[in-house]
Amino acid sequence: MNAASPPSLVDEIANHPLFAGLDPKLVRAAASTAQEREFAAGDLLAREGTTADTLLLILRGKVALEVGAADRPTLTVQTVGPGEVVGWSWFVPPFRWRFDARAVKPTRAVVVNGPALRETLSRHPAWGFAFLVRFLPLIAERLENTRIQLLDIHAR
């Protein structure tokens, strides 16, 4: 890999831990509706409550997942970096973002079209299963981390 030939979108997706090793046809299908995007520090990648139709594969930079309410300051509950993903709300009804995702550093991500990916996965159950085997652990890990935060481990 060098500056002269940047990796193609397909390569970026295929190299991302979420898709690495999955059926190349699935990777190509995902790439067909995806685009690579740059976000400046402070840009919103997702806004809580709005329609969630993207899966973001983070390639570089750092994204903060924020929750907030009118009566209290916005709180960052997790930061996500290269090799990680933002978003599963595109996969489960009602398809709305559960938090704000904000770039805290200049960030590059592959933005995969959620509804299209959903459609692909449902038409190819084998791909769907293989994808879920990768995707569910990410959700489980996020839940686990949330659980640990709830434990308030530094509390006395």
Binding site: L65, E66, P73, T76, V77, Q78, T79
Partner: peptide
């Protein structure tokens, strides 16, 4: 574990 916007480090 959690931070406000004034924190630029990692959260989690």
């Amino acid at each position: 574990d959690a931070a406000g916007r004034d924190w630029y480090g990692d959260v989690g």
